[in-house]
Design a protein around this nucleic acid. Structure first.
Lengths: 126, 126
DNA sequence: TTAAGTGCAAAGAGTTTGCAAATAA
DNA sequence: TTATTTGCAAACTCTTTGCACTTAA
């Protein structure tokens, strides 16, 4: 594996943007180097994920969003207004323990978003 | 809104199949009535969801899966072998309470899948 | 000079949209 | 009649694949 300029650009973009879709990463990279192709973005995101440098989460219905590996938290996604709130992974510690004990399932808290209704929407503000 | 034959067929299929993608619902409906179009499946699933008769969950990377509204549970998806296990929503009650109290967020436990590694994969059986 | 990496075009899944024909109030 | 519903084709988003060209070891 060579840390090519393209790959460095993609990694930098993921770190800089945070929660960004492949499309957004592409746009950002192309501001500096317009020749970089979206295919390379996809291939590089896969690669960086295999290397453990980035990870993706499924937030809502659209494209997944990528973040740097060390940026870990749980996402609360409102299915009414699509807002995303970040809360500490620690909130899932107990659930994680239960799932492990009862089902042998090792929870990866930061990978998925928890869906529900946010405070504002509950109060009828949206 | 008229409960047309197509709509009844879609609802029946969702109930019968459980956790089925729009594509799978379509295949099932077309066994009885081959003329029903996939567009109608999508439109009807949306409609039935608005009426509260079905709901969808995002399991893994592909298409969402639809189930009857009363069929509620949490999905544990293994991101290594893609197996899906169902566990009671009650497991999230405490988390749900915490999120509500601290963030005003009303969790919808059955909407999303929890991602992680399943027992078999942890034991190196896959 | 060989293997890895890239860009480009095309294809593929999944989904939505526009519109005209069919259906039922 | 008139609004609703449907089927069909086309478009659209997101992602992957095949292949030739480029690049660095």
């Amino acid at each position: 594996m060579r840390m090519t300029p393209q790959r460095q650009l993609v990694l930098d973009a993921v770190v800089a943007l945070d929660h960004s879709t492949p499309e957004q990463v592409c746009k950002h990279v192309q501001q500096t180097t317009p020749t970089v192709n979206i295919t390379t973005i996809y291939r590089t995101l896969d690669l960086l994920e295999q290397l453990g440098l980035v990870r993706h989460a499924h937030i809502g219905h659209g494209a997944p969003t990528y973040s740097a590996r060390d940026h870990e938290h749980v996402h609360l996604v409102c299915h009414r207004c699509d807002s995303v709130e970040e809360v500490p992974c620690g909130l899932l510690d107990e659930l994680s323990g239960t799932l492990s004990a009862r089902y042998g399932f090792k929870l990866d808290a930061s990978h998925v978003a928890l869906s529900g209704t946010c405070r504002n929407c509950l109060n009828g503000e949206n």
